[in-house]
Design a protein around this nucleic acid. Structure first.
Lengths: 218, 218
DNA sequence: GTCAACAATCTTGTATACAAGAAATAGCAT
DNA sequence: ATGCTATTTCTTGTATACAAGATTGTTGAC
């Protein structure tokens, strides 16, 4: 096994949690992980601490740390929070976005449109990610940007699944157009409201999400 | 020194950062801290990891971890983010708050009013904290509640200072009344807007905050 | 056969030893 | 005296040894 930096271990573990290689309730055995990464237990324990603080895992004293995958309820709450944060980003970005950033958003939307036409889910996903990250950045608030990115990353796996639902990409695309329009007009309320409902998981989409959860659990 | 649990070390360190015993740029020496808490370096290092992940400290490889007190710019961004999160909480709470919680808010406001009359800053601070925490809770979203509490706690020291400014308590009190009214009416927009400007640091209050920062740095 | 108690084993938590890089200091040359 | 280099010392990062608690397996009694 090649040399691995300590920080990379935490990132790698996070990735393994996100991608679902570690299932809910799995115990993260220090010795096994130490062997897997070719290091001693010490850096593994430090990485585990980070997972626990990030809320990705739970630590039971003298028992170990256990993966804590979000359940349906957790996910609902996280998506609702994400929707509110996106709305806040949209509101601030509407007040502050630069012309060049608006141009970037238009280019991104063009690529998204192409992905929709081609039925390219991964392509759309990448474009969608860039779209949102540009908006985070255009809040001019690096703290908020960071928080938005953190939650976005946490939910990215679930977002991806949602795009596979029939008609979702096209609908998402239309919402993007409205957001850009609102941002160009400096219409903070419209930008916020559109982004909120763009991200929110309501009605039928809730059931879709739960269904995809069940699949992932197997 | 009495026996101390590992988690308590991280909490204690956090407290020392918040209360300002550790100044910006201070290096957290592992050996010194180990001696201070009467443990070996290992649990100290785990506590330091937590500080770093929480963003309270910064880790430079092979150099150590350094306290990272927020500067004026950071504080502005954090307060703006807090304002947006409070607005989101107000919006959701307006849709979901229970009658009993509304009653609690009114009682809390009564105590706040008494504190304003008495010029009791600490009393008002406690009432204010409870006021906001009830709103967080009434979002019915424990994830958002947790995030709001986290940022609130991070900013609490700075908020406290602000109350000492002439007229701030009375103004804050009036805003509380408006919020309760909006929540009772289910007026999500008014609740959100009022809470946003209640928390936001704008105009003269920005200068007040910076001034208090300079005091704290000495 | 089932349950309980005890023992063996395994895992986490902590301390310490060791390795490696960074800062500080001393020595040397200009 | 000053600046550069080499060595020393100190600190972090990692591995390992040890202690304490939890789990599991076995044995024995009923």
């Amino acid at each position: 096994m090649e040399k691995i930096r300590p920080n990379e271990i935490a990132d790698a573990l996070e990735e393994l949690v996100f991608t679902g290689e570690f299932k809910d309730g799995d115990r993260l055995d220090e010795i096994t992980l130490a062997a897997r990464f070719g290091v001693s237990r010490t850096p593994i324990r430090e990485a585990l601490q980070r997972l626990v603080v990030s809320g990705l895992a739970e630590q039971l004293p003298r028992r170990g740390v256990f993966i804590r995958q979000p359940g349906p309820m957790d996910l609902m709450e996280m998506f609702e929070t994400m929707a509110e944060i996106e709305a806040a980003c949209g509101r601030l970005a509407a007040l502050r976005i630069s012309d060049t950033a608006l141009g970037t958003l238009e280019q991104t939307n063009a690529r998204c449109q192409a992905a929709v036409t081609a039925g390219d889910v991964d392509g759309y996903y990448r474009g969608n990610q860039q779209f949102h990250q540009v908006i985070y950045h255009e809040t001019g608030n690096s703290f908020l940007e960071h928080e938005a990115l953190r939650l976005n990353r946490r939910l990215s796996a679930f977002r991806r699944v949602q795009l596979r639902w029939r008609g979702r990409m096209a609908q998402s695309m239309a919402e993007h157009e409205t957001v850009v329009m609102a941002l160009r007009d400096g219409n903070a309320v419209l930008a916020a409201d559109t982004l909120r409902s763009h991200v929110a998981v309501q009605g039928e989409r809730f059931h879709q999400l739960i269904a995809s959860l069940r699949m992932a659990a197997q």
